[in-house]
């Protein structure tokens, strides 16, 4: 897990999986095609303006709704390096860890970060630094078991390693 540095994109509370990747695009499962429609029903121009390494910062219950792993896949493939939220819906949380999309729960960061700011993220320490002010927000640490899955690069590698 390296250092992340990127621009902040702000989203609100209860961003559901239909907003992240609408079901009308689920007749394919190729990540690069899903990425073209990432966040489309929350912000139709999103996939055109996001750059690799950027960070999504959202409110509570991010990823609520369906179990579609296509949601974190679309976000990851769109180049988003990390999703920060006040908290995540349960299945999205699992899926993100399982596919190796970095996510952090930080109430402070979710409340104070603004669109366009640049943040630096240290995933191991769970620290989010806003570049211009130097203000540091801390995130909820993962339990050790999940750390292992994350450092294996996702659940599939974790299982392979265990065999």
């Amino acid at each position: 897990m390296g250092q992340i540095k990127g621009k902040v994109w702000i989203f609100g509370d209860d961003i559901d999986t239909d907003a992240i990747i609408p079901a009308r695009y689920l007749n394919v499962s190729v990540p690069s095609e899903l990425a073209l429609h990432c966040m489309e029903d929350a912000d139709p121009s999103f996939s055109g303006k996001v750059s690799r390494g950027d960070v999504i910062v959202a409110g509570s219950n991010f990823g609520c709704g369906s179990s579609r792993e296509h949601a974190p896949l679309a976000i990851k493939e769109a180049g988003i390096a990390c999703v920060i939220a006040k908290n995540f819906a349960r299945i999205f949380y699992r899926n993100a860890i399982n596919i190796g999309l970095p996510i952090l729960e930080s109430e402070e960061a979710s409340a104070f970060l603004k669109e366009g700011q640049i943040v630096e993220i240290n995933l191991e320490k769970g620290e989010i630094t806003e570049s211009s002010s130097g203000r540091i927000f801390s995130a909820v640490p993962f339990p050790p078991f999940m750390q292992e899955i994350i450092s294996a690069g996702g659940l599939i590698n974790f299982i392979k390693d265990g065999q």
Binding site: E69, I91, N95, N98, L155
Partner: peptide, 26 residues
């Protein structure tokens, strides 16, 4: 089930829960 409404079977007293595709693969 790799579908969020897998919780439906709770009506039978089953602990049933939705997960993602990677979980299903596992």
């Amino acid at each position: 089930g790799a579908d969020s409404h897998t919780c439906t079977y709770g009506a039978l007293g089953t602990f049933a829960t939705g997960v993602g595709s990677t979980d299903l693969a596992a």
